[in-house]
Amino acid sequence: MALDWKSVESFSKQLVKKIHLDGINSSYAIAGGCYKSIITTRPPRDIDVWPYSENDRTVIVESLIKSGGVLVDDNLFNSRFIVNGNVVEVVCKKSNNFKGVFEYFDIALSCVGASFESGFFTESFVHPLVKQSVANGTPLLIIPMPNMPFLLVTLERVKRYAQELGFLYPKEQVEYLKGKYYEQPIEKRRMLLENYELVTGQKYEGF
């Protein structure tokens, strides 16, 4: 199935039903790598929920718990739940609207999502580079990268996306990111390593 606006709408509606967020009194986006499942037909690795306000986040968390969701991790970036066998991550970053959510994505195949107002679908978005990514068989980067402090996280994610989708090893993207890393002064490289460990809980093992 093509990864386009219509398939994103249909898939998103299925997701929110699975995790019991359909019809709740909250506004949010579902966005990120979960939409790769439209291509692979495999269940998503996780489902990222982006609330538009702190009140929206509270309603979402309460709804997940009420529907039997189990909180398994709570950190600076998200609150992670298991809901009906699905990993659901309620993001802590504040995005006041649908457009704002996509300011955080460095990979075109992540820059996909759907917006829900008061729990009901309103619109979907697919980055223009998604079609080219699929046609070329490589996870294209969004340049300039909006999320440079997490460059190493993006580097590992690019490699993982290629593997999950059966794409060729993304040599051009990896070399670009490595080059950006080595352009940085030592202090910034140290920060990039620390950010990687903060996000993944693991030390970066190198290139």
Rank of each mutant, 00 (worst) to 15 (best):
L141G: 05
T122C: 02
A108N: 06
A108W: 05
S124T: 14
F105Q: 09
D106Y: 03
K131R: 15
P139K: 05
F121A: 04
F105P: 03
E123L: 02
A108Q: 03
H127V: 09
E117S: 04
E123T: 10
L129A: 09
Y104C: 00
S133P: 09
G119D: 05
V130K: 08
E117R: 12
I142T: 13
I142Y: 12
L140H: 01
L141P: 02
G113C: 06
F116E: 09
H127N: 15
F125P: 01
V130Y: 07
G137M: 12
G113I: 10
V130G: 07
L109G: 02
A114V: 06
G137L: 13
T122K: 15
D106H: 03
L140R: 00
E117D: 09
F116A: 08
G119S: 09
L129I: 06
I143S: 03
L109F: 02
F121N: 02
H127W: 07
A135Y: 13
V112I: 15
V126M: 04
V134R: 01
V112D: 07
A108C: 10
N136D: 15
T122M: 04
F116N: 04
C111P: 00
K131G: 08
K131L: 13
S124W: 11
S110D: 15
E103C: 03
E117Y: 07
L141D: 04
F120S: 07
I142W: 12
E117K: 13
I107L: 07
H127K: 09
V112R: 06
S124C: 10
I143Y: 06
S115K: 05
L141T: 08
D106M: 11
V126D: 08
P139Y: 03
F105K: 08
P139G: 07
F125Q: 10
E103A: 14
V126L: 10
E123I: 01
A135I: 15
T122N: 05
A108G: 01
S118P: 00
S118I: 03
I107Y: 02
V112L: 11
S124Q: 13
P139R: 03
V126W: 04
L140K: 01
E123A: 13
G113K: 08
I142M: 08
V134P: 02
V126H: 08
T138W: 04
A108M: 09
A108L: 11
A135W: 10
T138M: 06
V130D: 07
S124M: 12
L141E: 09
G137E: 13
S110K: 11
N136K: 15
V126P: 02
F116R: 08
Q132D: 15
I107S: 07
Q132G: 00
V126S: 07
S118T: 04
I107E: 05
I107A: 04
S118Q: 12
L141S: 06
G119A: 08
E123H: 01
L109M: 13
D106P: 01
F121M: 03
V126I: 14
S118C: 00
I142H: 11
S133M: 09
L129M: 14
L141C: 09
A114N: 03
P128C: 08
F116S: 05
T122P: 02
C111G: 02
I143F: 01
V134H: 00
G137T: 12
E103F: 06
H127I: 11
L141N: 06
A114P: 01
V134G: 01
D106V: 09
A114D: 02
Q132T: 12
F121Q: 02
S110Q: 15
L109S: 00
L141Y: 09
T138S: 15
S110R: 11
I142S: 10
S124P: 10
I142G: 08
